[in-house]
């Protein structure tokens, strides 16, 4: 019963938040609605017993990434409100229609057997010793060690790339000064 109530509450927050992201005319509001959705996601993860993922969701997504978004919005001063009419006339109706079609298709596909994988014998969710955190950690550092190490390389590349892209080069600065 508690689960049901919690699920419905989180579901409402998530959907409203998602709609809010799309509908808000001010990007800052969009970002705040996004936080609501992301936090309710963390709630779902707890309901499903994925405690570690839930914690990471709060720390990385709901805080770090959203803060980054807000920071960029403030830095660039792009919190201007968007005009209501879309210059591409067909875009909005076609997008809405496609969205509904995809939603219907996803629901339709759920009735089929498209998600039948064999149940795991090695990394079961319920059995084995230790809690969820410990088991996920063991899985990451044994079976998925190589991909895990590769992701660290990916992050380093992303950081270096981010710095390289956002850095203001002296030459470009001089050029823009001349232009001004």
């Amino acid at each position: 019963m508690v689960t049901l109530v919690l699920f419905i509450a989180f579901a409402i927050i998530a959907l409203v938040g998602a709609l809010g992201v799309v509908i808000s005319r001010n990007p800052v509001h969009s970002a705040l609605w996004l936080v609501a959705t992301l936090l309710s996601m963390a709630g779902f993860f707890i309901l499903e017993g994925a405690y570690l993922v839930s914690a990471v969701q709060v720390i990385v997504y709901a805080s770090a990434i959203v803060v980054l978004f807000l920071f960029v919005i403030m830095l660039l001063g792009v919190d201007r409100e968007e005009s209501l009419t879309d210059p591409l006339k067909v875009q909005r109706p076609v997008a809405l229609m496609l969205g509904l079609v995809v939603f219907a298709l996803l629901i339709g596909l759920m009735g089929n057997h498209w998600a039948t994988g064999a149940q795991s014998a090695t990394a079961a969710l319920e059995s084995g010793d230790g809690g969820n955190v410990e088991r996920v950690a063991r899985e990451i550092f044994t079976t998925y060690l190589w991909p895990f190490e590769l992701t660290s390389a990916l992050l380093v590349v992303a950081v270096v790339g981010g710095v390289a892209l956002a850095r203001r080069s002296r030459r470009a600065e001089a050029a823009s000064e001349v232009a001004q």
């Binding site: 579901a11 998530a14 959907l15 998602a18 709609l19 992201v21 799309v22 990007p27 969009s30 959705t37 779902f44 978004f69 960029v72 919005i73 792009v78 968007e82 879309d86 875009q91 909005r92 997008a95 809405l96 496609l98 969205g99 509904l100 995809v102 939603f103 996803l106 629901i107 759920m110």
Partner: peptide, 21 residues
């Protein structure tokens, strides 16, 4: 619920013009 969120996100991606949104 996930399907609904995915569709909302996709439609939002298509209709919004602010790159950050």
């Amino acid at each position: 619920l996930a399907a609904a969120l995915f569709s909302i996100g996709a439609v939002g991606m298509l209709v919004r013009r602010n790159v950050i949104v």
